[in-house]
């Protein structure tokens, strides 16, 4: 019983098989997290390839799904990063699909949510911000630093504003990763607690009468979590596009 209600247990990584090899002090071992990631990549790839296999003019069900996804992400990139932001479209699309599928996979019963581990979301956010920095410097050189100095400001104001802008910039990958991670983590913990509550009440004799109450809450929370899973993937893609906009147009 105690194990069932433990809301943290679901985030535990489970090793599968022997460690494959070691790199330095790190052992490389297949975990259910790695399996979920590989599964997500396989699923996305299969859907994308099967959806486009027909190449029919009038799309079937799978092809419309693929096209809707494509158009959705494309319009997000276009509206947030501008038309020249489309060169980053594959990156944003991969991020969106990856996060979306992993978020939704975590909603399966007994599922594991890869995106509830901060190292994963942080790595994705760092990837985004490194793309912004590297591309920004490659395209604009030192003018990219103009991002931190709003034009038309008094020099005295700049002394205060530039550090704030720098910190604000550094906070971007943090907020990007923390938001996704915290949403997934908090949602799943809340779900688990309420579900566990139902189980506890059912096992507690007379109190079982009120068990439908937390059950209803758990059902409502599940619906909310599905919404959050999709929404957070979308927010991740949108913010990535907005940050990429800075790399393309650092000036004002």
């Amino acid at each position: 019983m105690a194990e069932k209600i433990d809301p943290i247990h679901q985030f535990q990584l489970v090793k599968i098989g022997q460690p494959l090899f070691h790199i330095g002090g790190t052992e490389v071992v297949l975990t259910q997290s790695s399996l979920y990631m590989i599964g997500a990549v396989a699923l996305i790839t299969i859907v994308m390839l099967m959806g486009t296999a027909g190449r029919s003019l009038v799309p079937g069900r799978l092809q419309s799904l693929v096209e809707v996804m494509y158009e959705f992400v494309a319009s997000t990139v276009r509206s947030s990063a501008g038309h020249d932001g489309m060169k980053f479209f594959p990156l944003v699309f991969s991020l969106f699909m990856f996060v979306l599928v992993l978020n939704l996979a975590g909603m399966m019963p007994y599922g594991f949510t890869v995106t509830s581990h901060i190292i994963i979301t942080a790595a994705l956010a760092v990837l985004v911000i490194l793309t912004v920095i590297i591309y920004g410097f490659m395209k604009h050189g030192l003018r990219f630093l103009g991002l931190f100095a709003p034009s038309g400001m008094h020099p005295v104001m700049l002394v205060i504003l530039v550090p704030i802008e720098v910190i604000s910039f550094i906070s971007r990958p943090i907020s990007l990763s923390v938001r996704l991670f915290a949403n997934m983590l908090a949602g799943h913990i809340a779900l688990k607690i309420f579900a566990g509550f139902v189980v506890t009440l059912l096992g507690a004799g007379l109190w079982g009468i009120i068990s439908p109450l937390p059950l209803a809450l758990a059902v409502a929370l599940t619906a909310l979590e599905f919404l959050v899973a999709v929404l957070q993937a979308y927010v991740f893609a949108t913010l990535t596009s907005i940050y990429l906009h800075d790399a393309l147009h650092p000036g004002h």
């Binding site: 990631m37 190449r55 693929v66 991969s94 190292i119």
Partner: peptide, 28 residues
Amino acid sequence: SFGNQLLWLALAFGALYVLMSKVALPRV
């Protein structure tokens, strides 16, 4: 677990990016 997870993430996401940008998205 960070090192292990990062490695798998890099592998999985790298593969996804390549598959999407080189194969799937051009087809769509």
